[in-house]
Design a protein around this nucleic acid. Structure first.
Length: 533
RNA sequence: GCCUCCUUAGCUCAGCUGGUUAGAGCAUCGGAUUCUUAAUCCGCAGGUCCUAGGUUCGAGUCCUAGAGGGGGCACCA
């Protein structure tokens, strides 16, 4: 390991050392010869690039061009600078293109709002500023101030130094930050997925689509938060570090508190604390925060992921189902601008949610009835599933996942789960074999999971005990963790928790759907990677 | 944890069945150029072929082990 050459932070070869040396030399020249701070300072009055582009005035630009042409006529007076009506803007951003034409330099500058071209003419700005533009490298952060016009080809461009009086406080062009790193290929950008995830600070400026996805993620979360606070839900924060991990059956990360000398676990779910708040008298609560599960990593799983959990006292399965449907439709409409959105090849219609029964779906996608145990075992074997020692309902569920999930493309609430699969859910009063649970599937992905919450402390205690006893042998680690029953939570239920509906939505997967991304790593800023070096 | 594919210049990539001194474009460096859009033109330079072994007269190429990554599987009530 120690003698490995890390791929993304290589020991400088002759060539990289030389390339980096070139930039170091420019840094030194800025300081020593040009009296410039290569790391800049506060710069007020900047306009974001997209906003600057919006200020462009075609009329002013046309008038300015005509005046310039007229001034070229023989014997004509020079154009009057005061007649120049083009708006003057100050902009800043990272240089992603640099085209030097001798005495005229074009730079493409980028910020999170977009790209804009800057032109620096030696004749206009004079030697010192022109020299700064000439020594600018790809990746430097620069600022320019000038009139918004166009070029001969019609590209909206900031003409540095034009349309205002240049001064020390209002320079035509400055390098605000010298970049000492080598930029990605200016045409192909950064494509290696490993480097994109590891060096997100390069990826996000090199790939504007990635930046757009992350900005959409932020808007989705804000819209979700507003959606529920507007409906009188209280946003809360519950412990990330728990002495007894609960609310799900996943394997937790372990840690230790030194002063108390106790082992703690990063939470796998906030559920048991949010329910305590229902007991406490907060009737509508939600939390949007991280859960941590010590399990595999793939395109739809990151060890830390963002979950919305919500509880509604006096509600049930169907009250939170309505919230879910309304939220998805609202997000599609307000964040993405349409209720029908493309995911891969599929148009997903968020205006119409189907409700289908679990067992009906099973029969629909299998050529035998769900009660036919012999056929079920045969099918399980054919699918390569473990069938020996697995009870009927669990095998049914395994086969269900293999045969049904992939077909649930349009938003579908699956309801009426067999009760044995949902030990923590209330049963239907008139059908004790069926649990009051739904899962929402879109594009074959599980997006949400909801229950009419179990609030009978005796049934809950019995279920915890059954769960602890069920974990033995090969699940030794899990068994050791889950043998600790959260007695305090049971005491809370004995105090009395109102009947309630509860809902969990995987925010990362929701963002994947709404941004048409197919890997969870493309919607998480810094996905977990094995450390290098 | 398992299967499979990938790793060649700073970046993006060629490199055939093992065969001279491992190539290109971009970036960099020097020069020309006041309207470019991946600017163009001329010139220079740039390599631990992921690492360590092995087979061979000869390895970027084949074999073994390892590292990192992509995809899939398992795990994830």
């Amino acid at each position: 390991m120690a003698d490995q050459t890390p791929k993304n932070d290589p020991a400088p070869t002759k060539s990289t050392a030389q390339l980096l040396g070139d930039r170091r030399q420019k840094l030194k020249r800025l300081r020593d010869e040009l009296n410039q701070d290569p790391y800049g300072q506060r710069t007020d009055g900047l306009t974001r690039l997209a906003a600057a582009r919006d200020q462009f005035s075609e009329a002013a630009d046309t008038a300015h061009k005509a005046a310039q042409e007229a001034a070229k006529e023989e014997g004509a007076a020079p154009a009057d600078p005061a007649a120049d009506a083009r708006p003057v803007v100050a902009v800043a951003g990272r240089v992603i293109q640099h085209r030097a034409m001798g005495n005229l330099i074009f730079l493409s500058v980028r910020d999170d709002s977009g790209d804009l071209q800057v032109a620096v003419s030696k004749k206009t700005v004079g030697q010192p500023d022109f020299g700064l533009a000439k020594m600018t490298d790809y990746g430097d952060i620069v600022t320019a101030r000038g009139a918004l016009g166009t070029t001969k080809t019609g590209e909206v461009t900031v003409w540095a130094g034009e349309g205002f009086d240049v001064s020390e406080d209002a320079p035509a062009y400055r390098i605000l930050t010298k970049s000492l790193a080598l930029p990605p290929n200016k045409h192909h950008g950064l494509t290696d997925p490993e480097t994109r995830y590891r060096k997100r600070y390069v990826d996000l400026y090199a790939n504007p689509e990635g930046m757009a996805t992350m900005k959409t993620r932020s808007r989705i979360i804000k819209a979700t938060r507003d959606f529920f606070t507007d409906r009188d839900f209280l946003e809360v924060e519950t412990p990330m570090m728990q002495a007894i991990p609960g609310g799900a059956a996943a394997r937790p990360f372990e840690t230790h508190h030194n002063a108390l000398d106790i082992d703690l676990f990063l939470r796998i779910a906030p559920e048991l604390y949010l329910k305590r708040l229902l007991v406490a008298g907060m009737p509508r609560v939600f939390e949007i925060n991280r859960n941590f599960r010590n399990e595999g990593i793939d395109r739809s799983h990151n060890p830390e992921f963002t979950m919305l959990e919500l509880y509604e006292a006096y509600g049930d399965l169907y009250s939170v189902m309505d919230h879910t449907e309304n939220l998805f439709r609202h997000l599609a409409q307000t964040v993405c601008g349409a209720t029908t959105l493309l995911y891969g090849e599929v148009q997903v219609d968020y205006a119409r949610f189907e409700r289908k029964k679990y067992l009906d779906l099973f029969n629909e996608h299998n050529d035998f009835d769900h009660t036919d145990h012999a056929a079920l075992v045969k099918k399980g074997d054919a699918l390569g599933l473990k069938t020996e020692g697995v009870d009927h309902d669990n095998l049914l569920n395994s086969v269900w996942e293999e045969t049904v999930e992939q077909h649930l493309i349009q938003p579908t609430f699956v309801i009426d789960y067999p009760a044995s699969l949902c030990p923590l859910t209330k049963r239907k009063p008139d059908e004790p074999g069926i649990a009051e649970r739904f899962e929402l599937f879109v594009c074959g992905m599980e997006l949400a999971n909801a229950y009419t919450e179990l609030n009978d402390p005796d049934v809950q205690e019995a279920n915890f005990k059954a769960q602890a006893e069920g974990l033995t042998g090969e699940d030794a680690v899990e068994a050791a963790i889950f043998r600790n029953i959260d007695e305090d939570f049971l005491e809370a239920l004995r105090v009395g928790m109102p009947p309630a509906g509860g809902l969990g939505i995987g925010i990362d997967r929701l963002v994947m759907l709404l941004t048409n991304q197919h890997s969870i790593r493309d919607v998480i800023l810094f996905p977990l990677m094995r450390p290098q070096g």
